[in-house]
Design a protein around this nucleic acid. Structure first.
Length: 109
DNA sequence: CCCTGATTCGC
DNA sequence: GCGAATCAGG
């Protein structure tokens, strides 16, 4: 199973559109696990939602990333507080984007 | 019991 | 990098 550009695009866009991992997975043909994992690799962020699932307490404590996170202290200052205008390829509106998505899904699925 | 997302671990 | 297994919750 290799994530093609098409798959990734659909994944990201559908995810952004508010689709659930399961729905996307069904459309794409992958397991929701794969979708979630892929999203994580991509650096997904749907915003707010406390990390409910604890990082597995398997018999191998050579992990403690949780502790590391807990020990993380705030930095003194941020070097660059740049907030550039950004935004480039933003010619499509949400409606158009979704329409495109729907079409793509229809054709692809 | 169905679903949700999140994470880890083996390949 | 990919995906199954797994967790914790609604």
């Amino acid at each position: 199973m290799s994530w093609d550009a098409k798959d990734v695009a659909l994944l990201k866009e559908l995810w952004a559109a508010g689709y659930s991992a399961g729905q996307i997975a069904s459309r794409l043909g992958y397991s929701r696990n794969a979708v979630s994992a892929k999203l994580k690799r991509l650096g997904h962020k749907r915003g707010h939602k406390p990390p409910t699932a604890n990082p597995r307490i398997v018999a191998v404590p050579t992990r403690r990333q949780t502790l590391a996170a807990a020990c993380a202290r705030p930095v003194d200052r941020v070097v660059s507080t740049q907030k550039p205008v950004a935004k480039q390829t933003r010619e499509l509106t949400k409606r158009e984007l979704y329409a495109m998505l729907a079409n793509a899904v229809r054709n692809t699925g």
